[in-house]
Design a protein around this nucleic acid. Structure first.
Length: 569
RNA sequence: GUGCCUGUAGCUCAGCGGAUUAGAGCGCUUGCCUACGGAGCAAGAUGUCGGGGGUUCGAAUCCCUCCAGGCACGCCA
């Protein structure tokens, strides 16, 4: 598929060079990037470039003159009809109409692959997201993570990457032990035996349910099993739940990667040795350069920890890799994990993390550099926290205390598509405020339905057309009017939007684009009828063809957003 | 205290250097239900773009500063 702005930019670049060669513009070095964007003034052109405004200084000419010189030397291209100049110095480009109309057929021919790009062709990408430890059900915080991750994965696939989704988890730590102990206590209680949750135990009802199921399956046979057995049972139950929840909102993983495997195959310690061999590690009671106060805080029998000299790589302070107890911190296995990812040969990695993990991501990147890896393929999407409002009050969540709003509850209330869209229609940088009451109340007053309805309406036209025996065979697209052509121009922006989402790690742009396109669609639908008696047959065929392309594009958009594309509503 | 994110219409949010009218959804006002599913269409009201300085031909957008909120500053994960 064509990606217009870069192609137009290279035409402009060629025009500047030609103008210079002809003495129409003085010699100067061109900037690396030439801006081209869809025009904000459709009556002036389809795409616009302010390049002349920027070059005016280099050329020591007035912007309008520079723009005129560029316009005079624009090479011809099949998709360009004209390049015009407008004050204060814009270069406006109009697309060739017959090329434009031909794109309708190109979209229909591409079908589910419409606007597929080849940026990632032959390359492998991996998206790691959610990565919640199996201590409880998924909450809406995890949902934001997964929705962002899965949408980025879809976008990468549209760019031609072979994409894998991966879920990283830890089932070995203290939290999992407490989870096992908590389940054991619930199991005893379910048997009518006296038992209390451990001090920091998991208080949620969900473990009561798991315990009840264990009793149903095993009776009292597990009574004397150690907590480890219950940890396994809890983990199994939680993962089953988590996977089911994720499937409900269209998120599926290819791989569940256990942090523990990095210990089992020795890669955690190999990573430490490699860092040490490169001289980026030291053993000390406190970090190098620490003040006396820090040293004074240590107990007299303090032992040395193993430190990563992260300051070499721009960090403000060095980080502990191995505690004085001999146990690694989370940083070391995390570096080992990323080494593992790179060694698996992925060309492009995305890691979706909450705002509280920014430092972790930076430390991992520095660790990779220290090991001689280029961290460039590793991309981190940081999203700000989700705040839940219910009854006008902010709800503080805690998995351990059993205080949370599960994703399942939310999906049951408003539906999977609304949940996904609500999350996607925000920049990851925005602090998402989720008013549960409002979401429930307005579950049906939602842009989601507006977008989906565009697809429904297209499908409806084809249903009706089939009944009346109308087809778009031999459609003469030149009969289409200006409103229809404007819609086509907007459809053709989709590949640019996909590239923007990719380059800026900003999946929300696709959600906004889908709404924009729908806002162009519905007024057109109202005016540009296919099956009305007054519409001549040849015009009806042309319009039907257009709606065929619209249907393809809306389906494509909804699918990429992880939402359903219904035929009827 | 330091770093990162945020502050735009009543509410939730786009826009983050370019075209002197700043956008969308929801909500609100007024029309349109004998036309392909009205979960729609048409018209309308609503803004010191947090405050104040600066840079620029041009600033919601870049820089400085102040104010307000979130997150992070662990040998926790």
């Amino acid at each position: 598929m064509h990606l217009l702005p870069p192609q137009l930019a290279s035409l402009i670049r060629a025009a500047v060079i030609a103008a210079q060669a002809a003495g129409d513009l003085p010699p100067f070095d061109l900037p690396a990037a030439i801006p081209v964007q869809p025009s904000s003034k459709p009556e002036l052109g389809d795409y616009a470039s302010p390049v002349a405004l920027q070059l005016a200084r280099l050329a020591r000419r007035r912007p309008l003159e520079v723009a005129a010189s560029i316009a005079r030397h624009m090479p011809s291209a099949p998709f360009v009809a004209a390049a015009e100049v407008a004050p204060p110095g814009f270069l406006n480009i109009r697309l060739d109409e017959s090329w434009l109309l031909a794109q309708i057929d190109a979209i229909i021919a591409a079908g589910d692959d419409a606007f597929a790009l080849d940026i990632g062709r032959g390359k492998r990408a991996q998206v790691e997201c959610v990565s919640a430890n199996p201590t409880g059900p998924l909450t809406v915080g995890h949902t934001r993570n997964g929705v962002i991750g899965s949408t980025m994965a879809n976008i990468l696939a549209a760019l031609g990457y072979a994409v894998e989704m991966e879920y990283y988890f830890n089932n070995a730590g203290r939290q999992m032990r407490i989870l096992g102990q908590s389940l054991r206590a619930r199991y005893w209680q379910a048997l009518g035996l006296p038992a209390e949750l451990p001090a920091e135990g998991y208080q949620g009802e969900y473990l009561v349910n798991v315990a009840r199921q264990l009793v149903e399956a095993h009776g009292a046979a597990l009574r004397d099993e150690p907590w480890e057995r219950f940890k396994l049972e809890a983990e199994r139950a939680m993962f089953a739940w988590i996977e089911r929840s994720l499937a409900l909102i269209n998120i599926r993983f290819d791989t569940f990667f256990n942090e523990n495997s990095l210990y089992e195959d020795g890669s955690v310690w190999r990573t430490l040795e490699a860092l040490e061999a490169r001289g980026h590690v030291y053993r000390a009671l406190v970090r190098e350069g620490a003040g006396e106060e820090e040293r004074a805080k240590l107990p007299p029998d303090a032992k040395e920890a193993i430190w990563f000299r992260a300051t070499t790589f721009g960090d403000e302070e060095d980080r502990v890799l191995v505690k004085s107890t001999g146990e690694p911190t989370y940083v070391l296995p995390d570096i080992a994990y990323h080494v593992n990812k790179l060694e698996r040969g992925f060309d492009y990695l995305i890691n979706v993390l909450g705002a509280d993990h920014i430092v972790e991501a930076q430390t991992v990147a520095r660790g990779l550099s220290a090991l001689g890896y280029d961290p460039e393929p590793v991309h981190v999407v940081i999203y700000q926290f989700v705040t839940l409002i219910e009854g006008g009050e902010q709800r503080k969540m805690s998995t351990r205390r059993g205080e949370f709003v599960t994703q399942d509850d939310l999906v049951a209330d408003v539906g999977a598509d609304v949940v996904r869209y609500f999350i996607l229609a925000r920049s990851p940088n925005s602090h998402l405020e989720f008013d549960l009451d409002l979401a429930r109340k307005h579950a049906n007053e939602n842009p989601v339905y507006y977008i989906q309805n565009a697809h429904v309406r297209c499908a409806g036209i084809f249903r009706q057309a089939a009944e009346r025996g109308l087809t778009d065979d031999g459609a003469d697209l030149t009969l289409l009017g200006e409103r229809e052509r404007a819609f086509v121009r907007k459809m053709l922006e989709m590949p640019e939007v996909l590239v923007q989402c990719y380059e800026e790690l900003a999946p929300h742009k696709l959600a906004f684009y889908a709404l924009d396109l729908a806002r162009l669609f519905h007024p057109m639908y109202d005016e540009v009828r296919v099956l009305h008696g007054d519409v001549p047959a040849d015009l009806a065929r042309a319009r039907l063809r257009l709606y065929g392309a619209a249907r393809v594009v809306f389906k494509r958009l909804l699918t990429l957003l992880g939402m359903s594309a219904p035929e009827v509503m």
